[in-house]
Write a protein that binds this DNA or RNA. Sequence first.
DNA 1: TCAAATTTATGGTATAATAGAACTAATAGA
DNA 2: TCTATTAGTTCTATTATACCATAAATTTGA
Lengths: 382, 382
Amino acid sequence: MKTYPHNVKTIKSENRALIFNYLRRKPTSRAEISKGSGMSKSAVTMITNELIHDGQIVETNSAPSARGRKSILLDIVADYRVAAGISLHRKHIYVCIVDLKSRILAYASHKTSDWNNPYRLMDDAYREICGFLEELNIPKERCLGIGVSAPGPLDYVSGVMMSSPEFELFHNVDVRSYLQNKSGMPVMLDNNAVLLAMQQSLSNQYPYKNFIFVVVSNGIGSAVINNGTVYRGFRGFAGELGHTSIHANGIPCSCGNAGCLEKYISIQALQEKFGIPSYEKVVDDAYMGDHEANRILEYIADEFSCALGNAINLFDPDGVIIYGQFSYRPEKLFALLQEKVNRRSVITRTHPVEISYSRMQPDEASASVCSAIINRYFEQKL
Amino acid sequence: MKTYPHNVKTIKSENRALIFNYLRRKPTSRAEISKGSGMSKSAVTMITNELIHDGQIVETNSAPSARGRKSILLDIVADYRVAAGISLHRKHIYVCIVDLKSRILAYASHKTSDWNNPYRLMDDAYREICGFLEELNIPKERCLGIGVSAPGPLDYVSGVMMSSPEFELFHNVDVRSYLQNKSGMPVMLDNNAVLLAMQQSLSNQYPYKNFIFVVVSNGIGSAVINNGTVYRGFRGFAGELGHTSIHANGIPCSCGNAGCLEKYISIQALQEKFGIPSYEKVVDDAYMGDHEANRILEYIADEFSCALGNAINLFDPDGVIIYGQFSYRPEKLFALLQEKVNRRSVITRTHPVEISYSRMQPDEASASVCSAIINRYFEQKL
DNA sequence: TCAAATTTATGGTATAATAGAACTAATAGA
DNA sequence: TCTATTAGTTCTATTATACCATAAATTTGA
């Protein structure tokens, strides 16, 4: 249900966003954009020339063509703007400056146990951002804003972090207001699974149009990308895969539910159940043919496939991408997962649903903290 | 990721759709539409006058106002167009003609066991539709198309029914092509849960913006409405709640999975487990204070709340609406469900998620078979 | 009863954006 | 060098809206 009207002015900004959606994936010619998007050539010319004039895009080399005049590729000007990012993790905090192509221009990572004062933490991070911008000689006006990522429950609409077991001391910290007032820049708070999924969606590593992105670390979070946009639900809390129950009367979880996936396949859970030293060790042993190690992988695949199968049955994706822990030598586990998911999910009877591991590089993942800010720029809802 | 461009012409059709979205809910004045939608008064006047001229809407009585000129309410002309519907159930087939306000103008229901020849079935249904149109003196041109609903797995994009345990003999029946060729009208095939959810969404019975609609009959299906539109997933198979597993190693299901919700709370399952004569009897007994009957309700709520909690954790809705079987004297069961879901779902820690039973009337539900066709008309993507 | 205030609806004009056609530019191959 | 082909630009007609002024209808209160 669309509640905003369209007028002559919105046309242009929507079409501009459409053009950016091509360019940010790869350099593209005017002709190709016109054909792909359905816009007239003249409209594409008009908009792109304006963007060139502004310095937002440039003409790069020309692309070979079978016959006729070569096309001139247009490309994003990566450093037209930058974005700052603050990534909160359980044991460290990561601060970075990122360009429009998600390349990291500056970063720092600090260990921290000082969760007592989230405001001081934000102060420090903001000071660091200012320092980076100065070093890079980038005036504040060229910084689009600050993206903040956190693993815990948060309200992305209001920009407030809620209390969680992991971040005990973050009781309704209004990250957005605080940082926005301090910096005078737009601030966007988001869940790290959502941000990573956005980044993955853009990376073209997998061709999925509708995928579930699962982040396995201490907890298990997820996000769903539906035709290129994040499925948010009512308040943006969608995707709590880790607290999905696979045993209605199973192991009690701190969340109040019983049988939560996290209680079965998180590293902590595996350590408790099997006494393993590390997941990597188990995988290495499994490849060496160790029976017990293979049994553990089988167990993980069994439990995980149940939760994944459920999510697939509900979301009907064309792919599932798993990020984090299980990406270590993933072939063996993923073969098992695929097989078991195929058995469990009725959706896979109608079309294949590929279970893949994320090939995102560490720096891409780090840069993802800015992806909401950068997306906002490219949408240019002027 | 929008892939169609906007031009001067699309503006108008989108704004017209915006106006219809107000009018189909309730009669509304031009002024109110203008304020609510953000469109200028002149644009609203322009479009509505055109629609009046076409006979698509009319001015009705004027609405009282505190001060100043009374506003003139505009209303849909319900019989400007009609839609035909064919609803396939396991043991009967339902055929109807519906107006733009989802009022049933003609209908018939037939018992049938003749699933041997789905084409003859469609032939019969289409003949009946033609008969109805003749009786009602409605020329074929005024019929928007034929909506077809079925409970089994189907591809709404291509309009093909797939084989399922319930409809064994429907092996890839191309309902759309067959009926479209026969009738020369647009044909839309859809899942009955989706159609009911669309109808519910329009009915304004509940204020939810993002709800999960669950249909409990022989199987358990569901559909998710996200900001007024159906969440479809990759190929429209989303919402297989009934084959969501709540016991990873539970009762084997014909779908290949184990522990599917259907295997626990479907009437058949309850009869097998508890030997009950009918669900209604159990409920009546429970209200009379019967201990065993209350135990059964508790059991249902336990199992159901697990699947619902999972779906809520994944979709983050503001409400869940349950339709069908459990709507019989629902207060007792729904109180239990609400309590258990609140315990199981982490989402309910952040905002309330109401578990309600659908108050849709039987005729509304029957008319829902046409809701995709009618929605298509009101969207008027000209 | 009548004027002021208020709200609804309409009409005219300026503006913005696109489509489409005609045109120029560049390129490969015969 | 000529031709077919594709890329990109420019100009004009079209279309839809916003904005402003105005008209119409209604209530309030003097």
